[in-house]
Design a protein around this nucleic acid. Structure first.
Lengths: 338, 338
DNA sequence: ACCTCGTAAGACAGCGCTATCTCGCATGTT
DNA sequence: AACATGCGAGATAGCGCTGTCTTACGAGGT
């Protein structure tokens, strides 16, 4: 019995479970993996033995033997944006309900870091990939394509039909904001951007295009590559009031910028929406509480996470993808700030 | 050479690297792990070959062979509190700089979920554990103790010297807030709590004790087990104004509650700090921007993450722990709200 | 009664790596 | 010169599990 010593962690091995159930290790393995060709009675016995011993399969051994883990690589630009947390939590929930795990990595909106992450996580032999958007470096894109793993891009919609994507049209969202502000009688527009990732630029493009199509000059762009934050929004707004007091509507690329600007407006006594209208993006918690309550674009991040995870699991299980593009839309939530 | 086929992911194996460098696999393994007894020239050659081929070690094989991974289990109550994100990012940074990885799990402040997580992650054979606080279930505590892995508790300080901890005194922080409010001439206190985890209760205890010691009656406690949020803070404050208009100082267990209350106060025309003083906790982003700028307790979460990770790595490398308790303190940031 | 066939259970090997033991060689000692 | 010593490099085995092949056995056909 020396061969059946427990693992260092104190967890039992499959062999011990098999011995307890009076079957061979292979049968125990099959029973626990729900391989169909096992006698239901034996399955029951093995299950019971496993539960009794507190058996947890060794994922390292499993991965090594099968050349495939039960983990899904999930790549997220940053953890500091609540947006991605909400998306990720849904992904995790769907995966764990089906016995999969999320191997989550975040790269601070940095392509090089994303590339390192992909390389590292590929070594874990994940069974699928969920990745945010399409802004990868060329090397990253090739790594993702060459590994041949099922993969779904989230938050953005693919331009071609050969890649699966779940998200919404960032451009359409930007355009919707423009139309709303025009409808409210605004004439002098600004766009506030930070971080400057791909999706933000798409929103801006949609916003500008809609303005131009309606006969307005393009909006003033206040852009910075630094991360979006409340303090930054306040500073940007303060600066704008100095340089361009005529602006009567601002579209913020993210709610936190809008929050900061709202605080600054209150401080300076600038009246929102009378003097200037604010529209945020994402409808983060607090948008419905701040003064004035913020008009914002509600993005379906949780639903994106859920659908992307479900579709990925379908691909992993060998299903043929029906639609490769899933547009979950967005919703403009009009509140007091516009 | 059939034995040297690449892995399914397209990544090369150690054997391929070794062949390229003209050494045995075992020497390549040692060279890449920086085992001292290898000729520097060979190390160089192996390194070069590995780089050329884009070699990434297979963590499953490594873990299986050595019965120990390079992963550290990191347990966090929730991802929705920016506090823990900041702590986690520091942990990750320290770990990855030393070639370790974080195996992060969050349990929605739920003991049962935490227990499941521990069991699952133990199967990954991590080399150490970073865990938030001391509020584990008995089973979890036993699992953690029995696995014999180096472990450090974060955010809270241990009561006994046999467990390592890095944090600050939540009680002392609560007491400091009480003293500050008393000093500001406040007389009628309330404590707003949500989530009701251990650390929150410690803060409350410190707050109440300091009030009583100064001769005041204990503060009115507005507590709910639901998660802390901006909307909740607004609702709690609104309710309090109805039931207890005489309260002239509130200590919020987390800044988001204070944010919500600040919005509601603005909406209702309740003057802060003239009519009522607000003190938050954690000094989250935005506390310095909101109206009025919020007095809050700045907690050293990033530093806690950094120190905890460094100390854990020291333990993993076999060092004897000097201090088992590391108190990183806190700072009361007095702003306009009190 | 004989054979085929399908199904359930086991045997076997091996995933990619590292712990451990072994060996060869250069160095130092008397 | 004979021997002990140390050190760098290789050989060997095995981590815990699963893919694949093999075997045992009962059912069904003639």
């Amino acid at each position: 019995m020396a061969k059946m010593r427990s693992r260092g962690t104190g967890l039992p091995t499959l062999a011990e479970v098999a011995a307890k159930a009076g079957v061979s290790p292979i049968t125990a393995s099959r029973a626990l993996r729900a391989v169909p060709s096992v006698d239901p009675d034996l399955v029951e016995r093995v299950r019971k033995a496993a539960k009794l011993l507190g058996y947890v399969p060794n994922p390292a051994a499993r991965t090594l033997a099968s050349a495939r883990s039960r983990s899904v690589m999930v790549l997220i630009p940053a953890l500091t944006n609540q947006l991605f947390i909400e998306m990720f939590e849904m992904i995790e929930q769907v995966l764990s309900a089906r016995g999969f795990e999320a191997l989550m990595g975040h790269y601070h909106y940095d392509q090089a870091e994303e590339e390192r992450l992909i390389r590292n996580y590929l070594a874990y032999q994940p069974c699928g990939i969920l990745v945010t958007g399409f802004g990868q470096s060329e090397v990253s894109a090739r790594l993702l394509a060459d590994c041949g793993l099922p993969r779904i891009h989230m938050m953005e919609l693919a331009e071609t039909a050969d890649v699966a994507s779940v998200g919404f049209s960032q451009e359409a969202a930007g355009a919707a904001v423009a139309r709303h502000l025009i409808e409210r009688g605004r004439r002098h527009f600004a766009f506030f951007g930070a971080q400057l990732d791909r999706r933000l630029l798409q929103r801006r493009d949609g916003f500008q295009r809609a303005l131009v199509e309606a006969g307005f000059p393009p909006a003033l762009e206040i852009m910075t590559p630094e991360p979006s934050s409340i303090a930054l929004g306040a500073a940007q707004f303060s600066a704008l009031r100095q340089t361009d007091p005529g602006i009567d509507a601002i579209f913020f690329c993210n709610d936190d910028l809008a929050f900061g600007a709202s605080f600054e407006a209150l401080r300076q006594g600038v009246r929102v929406p009378e003097t200037i209208a604010f529209v945020g993006f994402n409808d983060l918690p607090g948008a419905d509480q701040i003064l004035p309550r913020l008009t914002s674009v509600r993005t379906p991040r949780a639903e994106i996470g859920r659908c992307a995870a479900l579709r990925l699991l379908a691909l992993i299980e060998g299903e043929k993808p029906a639609d490769t593009r899933l547009d979950l839309g967005f919703e403009l939530i009009v509140r007091d700030s516009s």
